[in-house]
Design a binder for these strands. Sequence first.
RNA 1: CACCCUCCUUGUCGAC
Length: 381
Amino acid sequence: AISGTTMMTAYAQTGHVVEAKELFLRMPEKTSVSWNFMILVLANHKELARAKTLFDAMPERTAYSWNIMIQGYVDNSRFQSALAAFERMPQRSTASWNTVLAGLVAAGHLREAERVFEATPHRDLHAHNTMVSAYCKAGALHRARELFDETQNRNGVTWNTLLSGYATAGDMARTRSVFDKVPHRNFVCWNALLQAYVQNGQLSTAKATFDVSPCRDVASWNAMMQGFAEEGQLQDAELLFQRMPKRDVVSATALVVAYARHGHITQARALFDGLPVRDTIAWNAMIAAYTQAGLALDALNLFKVMDLEAVPLDHASLSSALDACATLAALREGKLIHSSILHSELFHSNTIVATSLITMYARCARLCEAKRAFDGLTKRD
RNA sequence: CACCCUCCUUGUCGAC
């Protein structure tokens, strides 16, 4: 017999969240694994409030359960809640420390991250890798290198992190020398080198790397295609897209954006409509394409469809939609979006969304004033 | 004890 927990896991992994939920509720004896797993599913689907309710209702919370909640808060940029949970939990595992560390890094709090790193009882390889990555993101490559040198038992992630750090900083000499020293180059490593050349405008070297790479996957093809697109070589990008052995939603989104940037908005939309899988970023890209083409009404309409189809919104979706409202001076629509933001409680502390909200209200207010002034004028006449 | 949570590469947006 298949256990309920196994069945539930299978449902959730195939995207059948509702079925997983029902099964969980019907399970006569809920195991600790099933509780944790249900919380994980809810947290991953941005249903943090429900996850929290379940978390509170659990008979026995392990460090694992706490870690899921902390990660959920981090994913939703609720860093205060993450820290609060971290401080409240009875015993912290290494994963707890690492989750909080990664959360602080994601929030851009390097000093705090350093403090947590120092305080971590068991600083494992994950923690080291997270900090190397943090220094790279902050442009502190010297510190990244020092920590890299101090790190025992480096793995592929450690090497790849430093390599990408140099690449982002535009230091191709060090990027290359790190690459040459990597003990076992994996797919990420080769792709990181490829991307390094792409993002530093060395498309022909990128191409050469691509051609000799023993590790070519969909990410390699996508990176090359994006390189052509960014150089304005739309036809080459298109050709690559057609020749790719495998395409995913990333490939298609990149081409949608490329079409749009070249003014081919209809082609972009056709490609978008034909996608078998459309994630949040794909929708955002299409909406932004309309906005940037000055087609604010199309942008707003597509946003409404996105919302209707229950695609998870993020700060970029909301920001684009609000920008469209601003352009159209659509105060009513803007207010609707605003209230749904307040209702969802997901974007309260998001500065990007807040900025778009202010812009929208400012623009509408100005127009309203203008309209009032105009009305006043006609009445006088 | 094992399992499930934490780190690296490709697509959208990010306020002088």
